[in-house]
Design a protein around this nucleic acid. Sequence first.
DNA 1: CGTAACATTTAACAATTTGTTAACATTTGC
DNA 2: GCAAATGTTAACAAATTGTTAAATGTTACG
Lengths: 195, 195
Amino acid sequence: MARNGQEAVAEAKRSLPDLIVLDIMMPKMDGIEACRIMRTMPEFKNTFMVFLTARSEEYSEIAGFNVGADDYIAKPIKPRALVSRINAILRRNAPAEDVTDNKLEIGDLVIDREAYLVFQRGEKVVLAKKEFELLYLLASKPGKVYTREVILKNIWEDSVVVTNRTIDVHIRKLREKLGDDVVATVKGVGYKFEG
Amino acid sequence: MARNGQEAVAEAKRSLPDLIVLDIMMPKMDGIEACRIMRTMPEFKNTFMVFLTARSEEYSEIAGFNVGADDYIAKPIKPRALVSRINAILRRNAPAEDVTDNKLEIGDLVIDREAYLVFQRGEKVVLAKKEFELLYLLASKPGKVYTREVILKNIWEDSVVVTNRTIDVHIRKLREKLGDDVVATVKGVGYKFEG
DNA sequence: CGTAACATTTAACAATTTGTTAACATTTGC
DNA sequence: GCAAATGTTAACAAATTGTTAAATGTTACG
């Protein structure tokens, strides 16, 4: 159980749960912000996020859904009721068949998150962890430009502070291994995957 | 997981499970009806059917048993408790001769969970318990990378606290006994079985 | 019960890989 | 052409894993 938004994001990245319950009034970073950030991360693509709040404010409700929440539960609620509500959410959102195979196939690349492997035209390419994460992030939404800031938030722990330019070096290594065409520079903005 | 009685029957016919848990209050066709129907089908002759219900009503209980249920579990019940209850039912109804052989054959290995034995190209290899568990876990999904955290959760009791690095030593012993190619390191992530 | 044999865990250090930075070169858009 | 942004390189720092040995637990057996 995380006590604030920052902890929530950190712990969620570590344990990758199927469902996250966010209290809107957590200190430091609130639940809405945590949700917004997690929604930009590919590993939470299939995670359900539910808001829990004491006040039934219109604002909270609207803001929560806008950042990608899947449901909304009003406090006070008895623990048992909360559990059954959560079960209901999981049930109604259960995938028909769970064939979720974390493979990403784009262009001449196959990115297998489970095996931590990348194949290019059938050839195995060995990437270091940060390189892999970077590629996976960009490739999870081909064409979308990721600013260095967003990339940092996604791939680095919150506590770690690194120069923006570090990303450039990792990009360079990706290009070295996969060819210059894989990642495109958008000057003044960031990088994007080229499908 | 089926969401109602009709689905339950359909899915059961498809997958022919050893045990079916029926919720009495499923919509459309309730669990009792599902049980009655399945009991008339020859393919479910040896299938155990267990009822799960929220209310401990006499009616449910009696009606359930009358249609051929094998046991009855009252809700609320914690998932873990449910699992152990189910295991108990399966165990006490286990056929005299357990012909289930949990043999895993991968590459030049044969991993026999029942006998706790590993053969490599026909040669018996003796592994300690932890080594065996570790190999079995990794081999159960070749290619998939297991983080140390996941490995710990799977092989060690929840109460036991051990250093991550303990795993490294067991990996080393596995490599010593089976060769370096069996388990691959994914730096920064974990280990995986190499098919 | 004690002991030997074995299994498990930890700690320490070495080896290796990966990540980061800084400096300088190059490119880009105005 | 100029300034800002990015590319490139290599040195250094940090993190991760490999390896070994010793300490601690556990089990089987006389």
